[in-house]
Nucleic acid binder design. Sequence first.
DNA 1: CTGCACCATCGTGAAAAGCGATTGATTCTT
DNA 2: AAGAATCAATCGCTTTTCACGATGGTGCAG
Lengths: 290, 290
Amino acid sequence: MYELRHLATLAAVADEGSFGRAASRLGYTQSSVSQQIAVLEKTAGGPLFDRPGGPKPVRITPLGAVVLRHGRELLRRADDMRDGIERFRAGDSRIDIGTFQTVSNTLLPRMIRELRDAHPGCDIRLFEEETDDPDLTGLDLMFFDGRTGDAIEDLKLLDDPYVLVARPGDFPAGPIPLEKLDGLPLVAHPAICHQAVVEGFLNARGIQPQFVFRTEGNEALLAMVRAGLGAALAPRLAVLRDDESLALHELTPELPPREIFLLWQAGRTHSPLAAHAIELARRAAADLTG
Amino acid sequence: MYELRHLATLAAVADEGSFGRAASRLGYTQSSVSQQIAVLEKTAGGPLFDRPGGPKPVRITPLGAVVLRHGRELLRRADDMRDGIERFRAGDSRIDIGTFQTVSNTLLPRMIRELRDAHPGCDIRLFEEETDDPDLTGLDLMFFDGRTGDAIEDLKLLDDPYVLVARPGDFPAGPIPLEKLDGLPLVAHPAICHQAVVEGFLNARGIQPQFVFRTEGNEALLAMVRAGLGAALAPRLAVLRDDESLALHELTPELPPREIFLLWQAGRTHSPLAAHAIELARRAAADLTG
DNA sequence: CTGCACCATCGTGAAAAGCGATTGATTCTT
DNA sequence: AAGAATCAATCGCTTTTCACGATGGTGCAG
């Protein structure tokens, strides 16, 4: 088996025309270089250099030229490999992240910005999908509002409490008793993911709001509220900014908050980029709640 | 420094999904594979595989994937190198040979045929040049009618005696005394290389033939003899085949024979192809004289 | 012939490779 | 729930390789 170390020595000898000079260039002794070339010559099956003797430079043989040509190519590729690994370790690589709407509007922008600042050359790819059954294949990380299967590890980022969003004046200020929701016309997200959990919670208590409109789009949801179609039962973070045309009411007792997790395939060792992304997501979530 | 042996092990583990299976595939023990991967992981600066434990297969990490991708490329190139060296050693390569007319017509055809038979894939390139001062740069071997500089080694192939070529009946059969050449109208090669030596030899003895025509072309030379322009003073091998229209006469005393050598750059280690070519030339020359 | 520059070789010590046995962890089976 | 099975890590040990310094031989120049 040829080894890169020997090929590097071969190239140095060819460059320098002398075993001794090659040795000092590489930090070896002359005898070591001599032995390395001898090993290479045994492997190749013939002499790689002609040694004229005396102060004349050694000259590559035809066989040596063949080995040298391939060897230099190999050494160049090995350098490429070192570079590639170095860049990967520096975070200059790719990360694929799954997300969903609320996260895309709240956590993600800040996290992406910070990640790009820290790793200018990196390639961040986002996949937005609203589903009950997250598919992590091909993704390094995924935001999701719930825990899932056992081949998946998670980090809980934050609790996103449910609130009632209404037009100012429609409800008295302050928390609203849960029973008031019974029969109330509401707009809401489709009954998937955590929305289904919340509605199950209400049903279990005999509270049955009247869902008059469902949409995945947060903006559409709020527009319906402004239009007077009804109040919205939605997670707090779905209401992006302070908006004077909308009033937010806590509920009492509280509904089970939507829990937002960051998921990844169990047992996976993260790339530096992914590890950093997890930390940034954690910090962004802490800032959002705090 | 990364080593090819470790990269081969890495690839085997990635293929097999198991240290132990990779070990038996490569003829190592499991512990050896474990250590090799550990070395690679230290070099790369992080884990290359996730080990779930138990019968689950190990899985490559993102960092491992980077190393593996480059490693496979390196291993592929190393295989190419082995192939290249193997083919070279099998003689499946190139040889550049310098020659001149007489050799091209006598020794070379047989030698080339035998060389191609022995090395079907080889690339033989011929460079025909008539000169006093042979230039071996870029040539593996060169035929020449004389020894030359000190940076050149040679193998004497044969003596090519000078003969007088005439029309049948122009001279009595048998050897011709050298003095008969004095004043004789002759056709001959240009006075270069060994021809110059021969004419110097005649001059030193006060013999001055009358050179009525000179040409490099052997066929032209013989055609002039047939046409009756004069006899030809030429090396024996310049007269290719038995030809009833021509009579060959030895000379007495003999002229210094043209010596035909095979030359190469001094100290050079020959490729297998060149070594074989030398041997074939030697044998062909022996057959020609014997 | 002597000095010089150069490579090969030898002996030695250190490092690495490789192996067998054992341990510890995890999963599958019963 | 307990045991069997699978698998990687680790330890102690031997063998091989690596690297070094010293020495010797060789071709060349003064």
